[in-house]
């Protein structure tokens, strides 16, 4: 297949060209540092975007808007339960996974029982999760256990530990998407849910598992992000709403559903981070930075879009 036909090629081209700009302005060693930072932050983007991508692939209207609230609730509860104790690391992690499972199941229950579009279901439920997080901890910031912070910020050479872990997860998910029955089912449901049902695919079970997986990944992301940034905060998930969707789409996954890829997520996550960094490097004020970020997202979409 022609390389330009690969859906993820644009995100990677953008990433490389922006990095070249940054490196040519600030020099090679600064360029390497930026890359390390991009990998650190990009890892969190990718972690939530994997879940979002599977959800988006389920077909038109499928998107999870409760990711930020899920991250916040899971990390808030985990930090308070662990209370900085390293002995509680594993129980804390299990609690995070349990919260993710619950949230995913609740989201799906709303979608299926109320027959409402996922966008509205996850939007309304996210208010509930956020309220629960506020009520549970009143916005107090509890420090993460030392070991968690060390792991979340740790590096091997210039490569962040967490990035390696998420990279392995990405490869795994690549196989899940293309080679397992679950992945095949998601793609089938996204292209034609009725045909999928008549081909014997358990449509609702597939959707259920996908929403649960998305919530669990978001919860885990919250756990490590709290470790990375010294504790959970109520607004910690804020930028992840837009970012998770932007990364999925810039990465070449079809918003119409039924068509997804994993390499694009990394390309898009690095691209988004490097973009902001480059605009900072150029010394632009916040206003211009926002305008350019938005304009470039739109431009990327417009270029990769198909002409009618």
């Amino acid at each position: 297949m022609n390389l330009t036909e690969k859906p993820w090629i644009w995100a990677w081209l953008g990433t490389v060209s922006i990095w070249l700009v940054i490196a040519s302005i600030s020099g090679l060693s600064a360029g390497t540092e930026v890359l390390t930072a991009a990998a650190s932050f990009g890892t969190f983007f990718v972690l939530v975007a994997i879940g979002q991508m599977f959800v988006v692939t389920l077909g038109p209207g499928n998107v999870d808007l409760s990711i930020p609230a899920c991250m916040t609730l899971a990390s808030t509860v985990a930090m308070k339960v662990m209370n900085g104790s390293e002995a509680m690391l594993i129980p804390g992690f299990l609690i995070v996974v349990a919260i993710g499972l619950t949230i995913g199941a609740f989201n799906f229950a709303l979608i299926i029982l109320l027959r409402i579009p996922p966008i509205i279901a996850t939007l309304s439920s996210s208010f509930l999760y956020l309220s629960t997080a506020i009520w549970y901890n009143r916005g107090l910031r509890v420090k993460p256990p030392e070991a968690l912070a060390e792991f979340a910020t740790g590096k091997i050479g210039v490569v962040p530990l967490l990035a390696i872990a998420v990279l392995i997860l990405t490869v795994l998910m690549h196989f899940v998407l293309h080679r397992t029955y679950f992945g095949r089912s998601i793609l089938a449901v996204g292209q034609n849910a009725k045909a999928a049902h008549l081909a014997g695919i358990p449509v609702e079970r597939t959707r259920f598992l996908t929403y649960v997986m998305c919530a669990v990944l978001a919860a885990i992301c919250g756990y490590f992000l709290a470790g990375f940034s010294g504790g959970a905060a109520l607004n910690m998930g804020e930028e992840y709403l837009l970012m998770s969707i932007a990364v999925v789409v810039i990465g070449g996954t079809s918003v119409a559903g039924g068509f997804a890829n994993l390499p694009g997520l990394w390309g898009a996550a690095l691209f988004m981070f490097l973009l902001v960094t480059m605009l900072n490097t150029l010394g632009l004020s916040a206003g211009y930075r926002l305008i350019l970020t938005g304009a470039i997202i739109v431009a990327v979409i417009a270029i990769s879009g198909k002409k009618r």
């Binding site: 793609l187 034609n192 009725k194 045909a195 008549l198 039924g258």
Partner: peptide, 15 residues
């Protein structure tokens, strides 16, 4: 199942 309405219930157009 063999669907008669190909577009709506049969074909996976991306595959």
């Amino acid at each position: 199942f063999v669907a008669g309405d190909r577009q709506a219930a049969g074909v996976f157009p991306g595959w």
